[in-house]
Amino acid sequence: MSDLEGKFVVKDLNLWYGDFQALKDISMDIPKKEVIACIGPSGCGKSTFLRNLNRMNDLIDICRWEGSIKIDGEDIMGDIDVTELRTRVGMVFQKPNPFPMSIYENVVYGPKMQGLRDKTQLAEIGENSLKKAALWDEVKDRMKKSALGLSGGQQQRLCIARAIAMEPEVILMDEPTSSLDPIATQKIEALVEELKKDYTIIIVTHAMHQAARVSDKTAFFLLGELIEFGETYQIFHDPKQQETNDYIHGLFG
């Protein structure tokens, strides 16, 4: 596999919720180890698109889709097991969703479920992930305490650590900072900056400046269609499409 080819290759993705078509003819090459921002007005299908990359839409009965999505050249509907796909493609949700367990149990939950039993190894994974998520210093003395006692921003970083603990190749983030205050947001953004050295990150955001700040490439969605996809600088300063321009300048949405 050459480095030139994308991490994800999406071709002619069409997706329906019942009769309602939420994504229309999406084709997209998502490059490795970059941050890709997905922007667009509410309801345009960003989350739907993101959730399709690790097949979270399988949970929704009325959802069905066609087209092809390949990860490293492998069809996500093919031989690859859905659980394996999800270990390779981690996800962070809009609202922090730590499980009602201790902080430690939360971080090592994924590896444990993969059958890892070794205590020292687990502890190591936990510590490294928390360090990567820039949370270690804040929680190292309370690892056995409930994760629900953390602040919103800490919880979200814990969720990121939880995803990192799986050593994924891609991390999907759906508006990870929308329920956080500016300081927590800033921390997460810095973290994303840091993480892109190791991971491909796809982030959905409503905050235009966030997309501009953290991403290398930006995809603009409108009414289920991918209007424009390119270098972030170009999208924000010299959009090719009129709709993109209107959106970026706050003319709708």
Binding site: M56, L59, T83, E84, T87, N97, F99, Y109, G110
Partner: peptide, 17 residues
Amino acid sequence: PMSFREGSLALGTTKIQ
């Protein structure tokens, strides 16, 4: 909450886990 289920499944666990 649904988010617990999603959070766990997104980590590559099976349904029964």
